[in-house]
């Protein structure tokens, strides 16, 4: 089953968000339009807007007010992708050339800053100060998480706690806040938006761990980038941490660098796959997923709750 089938009843609203995103990035600059559209048309799961729309259904749902949070969050996420590609020197995203590859770093920086500003502008359509305080704190944390990721690159003495804190900041918080802001923007009760935050956080953690597993288990075709990219860039993910508990495997992993050949990489990945690292990582991902599902138990029984449950399960089982 495809992810978008799970929330097909939102199709009209999601289409509206997609159109709104297109108009949000419209600019007087032809090149800026091209670069932003290039990114937008590369697609993406739009998981953040989906969580905003679903969570908003727990309150007084009105697409015209809820869309602001959905568009703002997706734009902020898009801006971070453009910047990330400069950081990672990435040539491909979702199988297409990145903005920095299609043009250059400078165009990518201007485009990222432009999209970020548009995101904040959209967000200001929401007058609730709490919404801004939540989102702004999240963006600061997100930045700190990215800085920590660079600090931790090739640092083999890091532990599980370092990893979890990093993925919390890098991924889980923005998904958590998507759920929370959706609920806040429709005036849902505080208890509901706090629960949804927890749900989003746990789903986000599970999502990122799955992503980190897929980096080693999926094919280059499925990933749109070479398998093992995280490892070759020095990002110590959960499967790597587990694999390093084996001294022989640890020595192999520590030899990996950006200059490691594809053949050598294949061999390291194969060693990791034959260890228990992947299975243990799946278990942690599943643990977060279970927590997310438990968070849902406290929410009112309705169709949306069932959809959130299905999305959580889909994320836990996805293959790429």
């Amino acid at each position: 089953m495809k992810l978008n089938r799970i929330y097909s009843f939102l199709k009209t609203d999601i289409d509206q968000i997609e159109k709104e995103l297109e108009s949000a990035i419209e600019s007087d600059s032809r090149l800026l339009n091209q670069a932003s559209l290039h990114l937008l048309q590369a697609g993406g799961k739009r998981i953040r807007p989906v969580f905003v729309l679903l969570s908003a259904r727990f309150g007084d749902y009105n697409i015209d007010s809820v869309k602001n949070a959905a568009v703002a969050l997706e734009l902020i996420h898009m801006a971070s992708l453009v910047h990330d590609d400069v950081i990672d020197d990435a040539e491909l995203r979702r199988g297409k050339p990145t903005i920095k590859a299609q043009w250059d770093n400078r165009i990518a920086m201007y485009t990222g800053d432009y999209i970020f500003a548009r995101g904040l502008e959209y967000m200001t359509h929401i007058q609730n100060p709490e919404a801004h305080q939540i989102l702004s704190r999240t963006i600061v944390e997100l930045c700190k998480g990215e800085i920590a990721q660079i600090k931790d690159k090739y640092r083999y003495d890091q532990n599980l706690r370092d990893y979890l804190l990093r993925i919390k900041r890098k991924t889980a918080l923005l998904i958590a806040v998507s759920c929370q802001l959706g609920a806040i923007s429709s005036g849902a009760p505080e208890e509901v938006h706090r629960r949804l935050f927890r749900f989003g956080y746990n789903v986000g953690m599970s999502f990122q761990i799955t992503d980190d597993i897929l980096d080693l288990t999926a094919s280059e075709e499925e990933l749109g980038k070479p398998a093992g990219s995280d490892l070759s860039q020095g990002n110590i993910t959960l499967p790597i941490l587990y694999a390093m508990e084996n001294p022989k495997l640890r020595a192999e992993i520590e030899r990996v660098s950006e200059n490691t050949s594809a053949q050598e990489m294949k061999s390291v990945i194969s060693s990791i796959l034959s260890s228990e690292a992947i299975e243990r990582s799946h278990r942690v991902s599943r643990m977060y997923l279970d927590k997310a599902l438990r968070d849902l138990e406290f929410l009112p029984q309705n169709r949306v709750k069932k959809t959130l449950k299905n999305i959580a399960n889909f994320i836990g089982k996805r293959k790429y």
């Binding site: 801004h132 702004s136 600061v140 660079i150």
Partner: peptide
């Protein structure tokens, strides 16, 4: 280069956080 990109984003995020805390949405 990586940290220069992130520093810029970090400084922008401080602008948003400071104004969000003082509720200056305008």
């Amino acid at each position: 280069r990586q940290l220069t990109v992130l520093a810029g984003v970090y400084f922008s995020s401080l602008y948003y956080k400071t104004l969000a805390e003082s509720e200056d949405v305008g």
